[in-house]
Design a protein around this nucleic acid. Structure first.
Lengths: 205, 205
DNA sequence: TGCAAAACGGAGGCTGCCTCCGCATACTCT
DNA sequence: AGAGTATGCGGAGGCAGCCTCCGTTTTGCA
């Protein structure tokens, strides 16, 4: 606690062992594969087996199922966030929003079970996927606000709502050709956003 | 197969024992309660315990988790289908559609974990909830077609898509006040449906 | 009243979750 | 280079839930 640990105690901790890093990578790759097929309830022991490590090792690296999830998706989420940034520069407000949503559909398409996993994760444990939701919310929120500021869409729809709607649209589909349906739904929704700006508020009741 | 079973063989089978009927009711009530709290992965043994029957009895009545699910929801689904029928008589096409969707949100609001359960059930086993989906699809499809035939909404959105979108909108929400958000989302979507009818097809890309 | 069909219920085998701890290994310091 | 030790490994084991199977009990019909 005192003496030689001194000032650099924070960074002086030994850097992780190479085998630990290697195993961590193996686990992430295995988890991605297993969850993609088996969905959110896939066996963690199967993940460990596939990664070629013991179950104990899995739990040391990722103490909870949710922690593993979040780690797997962190990178993918980054990509989506970056895409939003790029679209902001490249496209007109509403069009950028529309394209981002469409890209999201394609992204989900490659994941199968993962969409459900992510969706269920959010409400399940309050801790889980805080990062992912936060990042995506910020990304889409930026696009939303820009379009709203430009007066092109109604301004009372929040980024969380939009994200949830999107996830919901994707979550059930498993039959071939579902992507076309969802893309159409996205267009309908975006049209609805634009429409709302004209009539101020839609007739209640 | 022949002789005295004769013509009324179909109805001549002994009618179910009273205890069997009673236990079945108990199981359905228990399942509704347990699933509402614990979500789709709640313990079936907990359901049996709550119903005051053995686990074997549960499995005899409902051979699979999905069968139990479907049975629980059959009645609730009926109510929604009936509502669609009533709205058809009472409201203008688009307004009927909007109200039905809004009622659905309120319905889901009282179920908590059940929404996720239903959503996950559909893709999980091909057999499951066939009835429910079919019934609701028919109900909302009727409203959709009526509005489309009246030329008030675009015609290329199917009832399944609409249902999935709706479920998706509801699925994540757990915080207080979420209903208001979802009701707004529903309005946005309906606006989008109406808007689409004017511009024929939205600009792709 | 008697008896067979129908239903009951829980023991038991299986799998997955997660913890715990003795053993192996890779850094660090001399 | 060598030794010492923190760090990581991995699986055994306890627990809970899933589902099956079968001996026992109950009920309805004759």
């Amino acid at each position: 606690m005192t003496s030689e640990m001194g000032a650099d105690a924070l960074k002086a901790t030994r850097r992780p062992r190479t085998d630990a890093l290697r195993n961590r990578e193996h686990l992430l790759a295995a988890a991605k594969a297993v969850f993609s097929v088996g969905g959110p309830d896939a066996s963690l022991e199967a993940v460990a087996r596939r990664a070629g490590v013991g179950i104990g090792t899995l739990y040391r690296h990722f103490p909870t199922r949710e922690a593993l999830f979040e780690a797997v998706y962190r990178r993918e989420v980054e990509q989506l966030a970056d895409l939003a940034e790029r679209l902001r520069a490249d496209a007109a407000p509403v069009e950028a929003l529309r394209r981002w949503l469409r890209s999201n559909v394609e992204f989900v398409a490659t994941k199968k079970g993962m969409a459900a996993a992510l969706a269920l994760a959010a409400p399940g444990s309050s801790e889980l996927s805080a990062y992912s939701m936060e990042r995506l919310t910020a990304a889409v929120g930026m696009l939303l606000e820009r379009a709203a500021a430009a007066g092109e869409i109604r301004g009372d729809i929040g980024p969380e709502d939009l994200l949830r709607t999107l996830v919901g649209m994707c979550i059930i589909h498993d039959r071939p050709g579902w992507q076309a349906s969802v893309l159409r739904l996205v267009d309908v929704f975006v049209d609805g956003l634009r429409h709302g700006v004209r009539t101020a508020l839609p007739p209640p009741r």
